[in-house]
């Protein structure tokens, strides 16, 4: 087997192992779906009337909201990558892997890939939930598929950040919070829930350049979901080239964190 074939074969085996782990613990899926469904309901019905603006139509807001919630949900799944690695380290499984003649990179690729399998399942549940509260895909089927792929690519990129965090955290307890904390500024200082033009000063600039905003805007656009009438439209290069910017930043994140995580994996010691 060539070295590259061994990387893919090993990654496949590791992906299988991680997916089996989720299948044996269906309650994990419950956690991964119930939480975002609560978010949908809270934003749609609790904040929706207020955020929708004076005279704003809550139905329009819900349509706007869904792409943001989808992207946020799969982004949060990177915390599973963090916890997964922290667990494997604690249980000595990483030591076992490191003592095997297998690809180092595959252990991480297998984990980040498996986490996207989880994301797909979650997206199916979320989409059903969206349809129930009145969200519709307005564009073509192809665009809709591209929309889903857009947020999955971005989530995949974040998963590599999660892998790095999981490998540097000293314990599972720390991993639990370290995996989540950075998610809040990342996903809230963005166009996921509010018009990005409404954010004040520096926050507005951060939101404009936040790759997460780009991923959400691109997906929203591909779904054919418009902002509620009368909302200020975002401007600037990232907003006008949302898909391109989202893809470029995803690739950049992987290019930075894949070598970092792999280098860390080579040296990491089990607790």
């Amino acid at each position: 087997m060539t070295a590259l074939a061994k990387v893919f074969s090993d990654s496949g085996v590791i992906t299988w192992r991680n997916v089996m782990n989720v299948r044996r613990n269906p309650e994990w899926l419950l956690g991964a779906t119930v939480f975002p469904i609560m978010f949908v309901l809270m934003f749609a019905y609790v904040f929706g009337g207020a955020i929708g603006g004076p005279g704003g139509d809550s139905v329009e807001y819900r349509e706007f909201l869904i792409a943001g919630i989808f992207a946020q949900t799969v982004a949060f799944n990177s915390s599973y990558t963090v916890i997964g690695f922290a667990n494997d380290l604690q249980k000595g499984i990483i030591d076992r892997f490191r003592s095997l003649p297998m690809s180092r990179f595959a252990v991480i690729l297998g984990r980040t890939t498996a986490d996207q399998v989880l994301s797909v399942v979650v997206l199916v549940v979320m989409s059903t939930c969206g349809l129930l509260i009145g969200w519709r895909i307005r564009g073509s089927a192809l665009d809709a598929v591209l929309g889903y792929l857009m947020i999955l690519l971005f989530a995949f990129a974040l998963s590599w950040v999660g892998a790095y965090i999981g490998l540097i955290t000293p314990s599972v307890e720390v991993a639990n919070s370290a995996g989540l904390i950075w998610m809040f500024p990342l996903t809230f200082v963005s166009s996921a829930f509010v018009p990005q033009e409404s954010l004040p000063g520096v926050l507005g600039t951060i939101a404009d350049w936040n790759p997460f905003t780009a991923a959400v805007n691109a997906t929203r656009d591909l779904f054919g979901n418009a902002s509620p009438a009368g909302w200020p439209l975002p401007s600037g290069w990232p907003a006008e080239n949302a898909a391109l910017y989202a893809i470029l930043s995803s690739v950049a994140i992987i290019a930075i964190f894949a070598p970092l995580a792999t280098a860390r994996y080579r040296r990491v010691a089990s607790k």
């Binding site: 192992r17 782990n21 249980k91 000595g92």
Partner: peptide, 17 residues
């Protein structure tokens, strides 16, 4: 790595498998 087998201090078993 190809020539050794390691059994560690803490059984490195995936308990979900």
């Amino acid at each position: 790595r190809r020539s050794i087998g390691l059994s560690g201090q803490y059984a490195a078993v995936d308990e979900n498998l």
